[in-house]
Amino acid sequence: MPSSASADAEGARSKRKRGSSAACASDGSDQQGPSSHWLTPRAQQAYSSKLLQALRLVRGGTGTPTCSASAPAVRDAAYRALAVAARGRSRWSRAILARSRRRRALLRARRPPPPTPRHRQRRHQQQQDERPAGGLAGRAKVLARLVPGCRSLSLPALLAEVSDYVAALEMQVRAMGQLTHDLASSSSAPTTASTMIAPP
């Protein structure tokens, strides 16, 4: 488990590209494939297996079962698994992985945990309410805040990142919904779960 995680992290690190407009243009051209890639069933299965591994780590990581199964921990694991599935090809996935690394560093340095991401989301929502979206530029700014790591992007690069992010989020919702259904059916009636056939 940790070796594979470190390998994925190394892959993400090696694929990092920080550049000017040329890098943005290449990112835009490269992301035509990934957006269609999220629609394949293989990508969803790969994500589901990674999410299961992440959930096991979340359960095993903390001692208390109630704390380990908290909703924020599950959500963070889901987004980390999504970023790992993206293999660091997009800016939003790199931003999510960097965020998780910072949190781990904070946990190692200090014993008290950092503030929950819900607070951060609330702050962002308040900021959005304070600034009403006027024209195209205003709405682009609001959109840039919704996608991780895309606040300082130009409009073409932002649109490319958003297309990939939306497709990835849709796949994540499908995979999590199916996983929830499988867990509920297996916990309620194990016999029916054993006889169930996996839906396409």
């Binding site: 909703a71 599950v74 987004y79 929830t180 867990l183 509920a184």
Partner: peptide
């Protein structure tokens, strides 16, 4: 995603 995370957390 938030709703599904809560459901998954309850199931776990």
């Amino acid at each position: 995603v938030d709703n599904l995370s809560e459901t998954l957390a309850e199931l776990l």
